[in-house]
Amino acid sequence: MTSIFIAIAVLSLLALVFGVILGFASKKFKVEGNPVIDQVEALLPQTQCGQCGYPGCRPYAEAIANGDHINKCPPGGTATMEKIAELMGVDEEPLNAEAQSAVKKVAYIREDECIGCTKCIQACPVDAILGAGKLMHTVIAKDCTGCDLCVEPCPVDCIDMNPVETTIQNWDWKLNTIPVKVIHSEQEEQAC
């Protein structure tokens, strides 16, 4: 009989001790905010385009942390979706066909058509459009995220979304894609 009481006493004591430790730890090592949100946000492309239906990348990151679908980010593409799936431990969800074929774009203002209304400047989430009222505007191409948000407000439709130009700097080595030109040999020429 005594052994039972001893066991109960010891277990209660242990429970108390661990309870205190856990309580202390939960206070001492409390994490402010949800770290998952930051991790998801770090994966998102930060175009702030709102195509996911949320006003920016962070709100979407919050929504994903709260269980929203992970396939709503067309600028991020499949790669981003896969990374988020891995991070969140959820199944991969395919993006729609349009998003899959999306290429990175950059806004371009046809400057002679611009009337200087500043509407695109107000729409740009990353302040990548330069200009002033009644003066021509232009896009700072290196800061443009290609989010598309400036196209809609333009009253004269002078903004184009052009695919990002391939340069030597961003050229992608591709296997066996070096275009080999066929140079006719002299023998062949003679034969002809």
């Binding site: 492309p45 930060q46 990348c57 302040d127 800061d143 995220t145």
Partner: peptide, 11 residues
């Protein structure tokens, strides 16, 4: 993306 985020937050 980091630059865009900084610019977005600054805005």
């Amino acid at each position: 993306a980091e630059q865009a985020k900084i610019r977005f937050e600054a805005r």
